[in-house]
Amino acid sequence: MISFKHVSKIYPPNIVGVEAVNLHIGPGEFVSIVGQSGTGKSTLAKLLFAEERPTRGTIEIGGWDITHIRHHEIPLLRRQMGVVFQDFKLLPRKTVYENVSFALQVAGSAPRRIREVVPVVLGIVNLHDMFDRYPHQLSGGEQQRVAIARSLVHQPKVLVADEPTGNLDALNAREILDLLKKINEFGTTVVLVTHDRDLVNRVRRRVITLEGGKIVSDVEEGRYKL
């Protein structure tokens, strides 16, 4: 599903984001990427959804070489994957429903399809009774669930979550994790970037550890070391 071949990202002038990363993630996998601050976890995520381009090496997603992806192709890539962030990235002046339908609108979906899809994804994240609320009327966990619902509207093959629980307490974090696992069970490949020890230990799935931009360990059913 995802393959990195000897990928390096050097930020100008000379800052190492990631270095010589070789990585293969199969379809349906649930991979946690861990490591200390500044070790290149977010860089890896950004390379995945083409927010950054690799300095060296090649990246493929679903057989698509996105190493030199063109500007106008980036939207097509993003419509095939979901992205979730620590700060939710919801539009404050739009309701829950509008925030989710927005993702379909900008992709040119028909109103009928929007009316079908939005309640379904909001149902998946268990928010059917909060359609008309604004983000500031929701708890952090609920906001993140809206963001996850939004990431699901295109039925993505890959979901990239960069510290999705960074702003949440332990209880909410677990709920989000359960949600990601549920999504993974539907068949979506999940890449979870985190440094939450408890979370990683609960997943009991593949864990990749980064240090100084390099992969230092990659174990099936790993535990958070460090």
Binding site: P75, L77, K89, F102
Partner: peptide, 16 residues
Amino acid sequence: REEIGIMKLVGASNAF
């Protein structure tokens, strides 16, 4: 800028 950033993240085309 926030809205534009989010638009792009969820796959809005440049033209849009």
